[in-house]
Design a protein around this nucleic acid. Sequence first.
DNA 1: TTGCGTGCAAAGGTTTTGCATGGCA
DNA 2: TGCCATGCAAAACCTTTGCACGCAA
Lengths: 142, 142
Amino acid sequence: MKQNSGGGYKTKQKEKILQYLISHPNQHITAQEISHHLNQNGTTVGTATIYRQLDQLVHDGTIRKYTIDSRTGACYEYLPDAGECHRHFHLKCMQCEKLYHVACEHLCELEAHILEHHGFQIDQSKTVLYGICEECREKNKN
Amino acid sequence: MKQNSGGGYKTKQKEKILQYLISHPNQHITAQEISHHLNQNGTTVGTATIYRQLDQLVHDGTIRKYTIDSRTGACYEYLPDAGECHRHFHLKCMQCEKLYHVACEHLCELEAHILEHHGFQIDQSKTVLYGICEECREKNKN
DNA sequence: TTGCGTGCAAAGGTTTTGCATGGCA
DNA sequence: TGCCATGCAAAACCTTTGCACGCAA
């Protein structure tokens, strides 16, 4: 298992980037937002560094990368309980941006079905189902 | 309901772009591929025109837009029968990067289940299931 | 000391926009 | 004729890469 988010040295920049992501759980954060935030608070973190660190964090499984729209660019999100995320799927509302965790038999069955009948082994930790949540659908009716 | 893909004039360019998409159903086509194809066959279609028409087609509901990776850019896909359960999900192999299209009852059931029991309406056009395909799993055994 | 991490700037892509021209209705 | 659509080029963006320097171990 890969686990050390310190596949390399521990640096201030790495810390700050991860801290920012951790302090915004279940939210889509863009590289730009991180850059803005970090360069506002005195420190200076280059764009390249941000992207390099994000890549590494994604690779480590600490955060997740989404791309909803190529125009907006990629989004990143901290995974609060990476270890416990094996038994459930994630539903992401495209309207309110909220992330829902759903542990449901149907989803486990689905996974088994896809593996058995389609030969494809789903990685739940990487998969996100996009859509609109109930709350937002209610809002939209008005 | 918006329906007229002729929200404006009918032009050769518009025709050609849609024709290309229609002739490649259930496939992900990038703007670049369309550009390549159209500028190979004698005609000349500007990049801007392609993007403008694609935007319009997406808005009309004639085609669907995907963004799997912000680095690669967006993909577009013609929708043969928007009404039927002709819809399908996408499986993306994280190893060989291949994209699989799966139209399966189980997935439609899943969608219904999630909507009914979890109040979440999945948008298949934005959803990609990540994992490892059979081919790659075989390779990995060796 | 070793070599990874960082910043800066430049490069590489995709997508958008401005403007004059061309073509549909 | 009136206006939308097109092309071209430039611009705007996001992301990656090269290189010299700095810093963790």
